[in-house]
Amino acid sequence: MLDILHPKISNINKNNIDINLSEEKIKINIRGKNKEFFTKVGKILSIILPSETNTSSSNENYDVLWLSPDEWMIYFDENKNTNIFDQLYKDISTLNVGSITDISSQLICINIKGENIFELLSSGSPFNFEKFKNNVGSSTQTLVNHIDVILHHKSKNNVNLFVRRSFSEHLYEWLVDSSNFI
């Protein structure tokens, strides 16, 4: 039986591709449009939300990914500042300036690194990785093996892939299987 809460994902290395489960991450989805929203988020996170399509911004604490013109995803390690969600929620959601949702349980982060990762992803995705692979910091939402994913090019040849928990084991198996053919 598929255990969606604890998908069987183990660390694996094949053909210069490392696949690791990166479970200890907090992910927060934030949405908003007005000036007050941008000011408040900027103040709380000390980071400017990326306004350019398919980019991200980072500081020593957080990574923020552009998802759509009024939607972003923040993610960071569990052991970092843990009350950031409460702070954002209190100053933004409760005042109707925007909307803040903790999606840590919804998504799983799988880290993929190595020289051949873009060939691996391309083999099951309609996305054109040409620009993405040359630009550290790029982010995108697309399909991999028909499954919705959020990709973040964290550092050279190192990508954090976010996928819905219930799809993660299946996608992981596809990644492991497909890395045999790269």
């Binding site: 399509t53 398919n54 759509s68 013109p69 309609p126 996305f127 054109n128 995108t140 697309t142 399909l143």
Partner: peptide
Amino acid sequence: PFCGERDQSEF
């Protein structure tokens, strides 16, 4: 208009 050129299967 927001993400640029993408494959039809994403839409």
